[in-house]
Computed example of a mutant assay.
Amino acid sequence: MTTSTDKFPTIILIAGHWLGAWAWDEVLEHLATDHSRVTAMTLPGLDGDDPNRASRTLDDQAEAVLEVMTQLGVSEEQPATLVAHSGANAPVSLILDRHPELVRRMVWVDSGPVATGSAFDPNFPVELEELPLPPLDVLANQASLEGLGAEVLERFQARAVPEPGPVLRQPVKLTNDARRKVRTTLVCCSIPSKQVLELAHAGHAMFAEVAHLEHLDVLDLPTGHWPMWSRPRELARAIQSEASRTS
């Protein structure tokens, strides 16, 4: 039996480093859902109008995700689907650890859960407050820009907000193995799912936590690291399909 919650599940979209809610605009246009039950959020530290944004932490970001869930009426009886892209994996991993009962399904977009003790860049200099978006030639060596045209790249550069230093340096502390029981989907874009799973089972630091997930599905959406811009329609379809699943 399909309920209204199955048809119009609560979906929260969370973009990675340098990005805010605006990064999901094209995906939202294609999501076939009740828009009162879907939202894209900007993590603390990535709001360019926040004068204190450079001091925001992973804990601030996790608390903000929980606040959005509360505002949308998410509960143990009506859990949400969280969609996390790239560097949003650290605060969202904290949510999974602290409140697994509030997550119906986890969808990682060219990303995945982090392991306890890990930090994005533990050696990021303490004298630096933030990390601006690198020049595009440098960025292209760090993540695939496949599928992004000149107009999209110009918008990315114009709207990107520097990542707070504390977010980069702070290690993630996880204690609740129940996080691994949440049904999870990996949407694999810049790295094929076969390779991701091989790396996970080999214990690669970036993917090791994937090997511990108890309910895992994988989808391949071949493109670059920012599929919300390169393949927004297909990504929206994948998110809608996974969020509506009953198993």
Rank of each mutant, 00 (worst) to 15 (best):
N52K: 15
P166E: 06
A160Q: 08
D60E: 02
S193Q: 13
E127T: 08
P132T: 01
G48C: 10
Q78L: 10
D177F: 04
Q78I: 02
E67H: 14
R155S: 11
T223S: 15
A21G: 12
L66Y: 09
S36V: 04
T10H: 10
A119R: 05
R104G: 06
L72Q: 15
V172F: 06
A32R: 14
V38L: 03
S144E: 01
L235M: 07
P122I: 00
Q157I: 00
G165A: 04
H204S: 09
L43K: 03
D49L: 09
F8I: 03
V107S: 02
E130N: 11
T246C: 07
V83H: 01
R237Y: 06
R245M: 06
Q78Y: 07
H17R: 15
V107T: 12
G73S: 02
R245L: 09
F120D: 10
T57D: 04
L43P: 12
A23D: 11
L168I: 00
D34T: 02
V172A: 02
N176M: 08
V187S: 02
N123C: 10
R105T: 11
E77F: 00
P192T: 05
M106L: 13
R169H: 13
D59F: 06
L145N: 03
I14K: 01
L139G: 03
V196H: 00
A238M: 09
P100S: 05
L131Q: 14
R56T: 05
V92T: 15
T33R: 02
V172L: 06
Q195A: 14
L28I: 03
H225C: 07
V109A: 06
M1F: 08
V38Y: 11
G203R: 05
D49K: 07
H30E: 07
M69E: 11
A205T: 10
E151A: 13
R104W: 12
S144G: 00
V187C: 07
P100D: 09
P192G: 07
A205V: 07
V65K: 01
L174W: 05
A54M: 12
A158I: 12
K7C: 10
L28R: 13
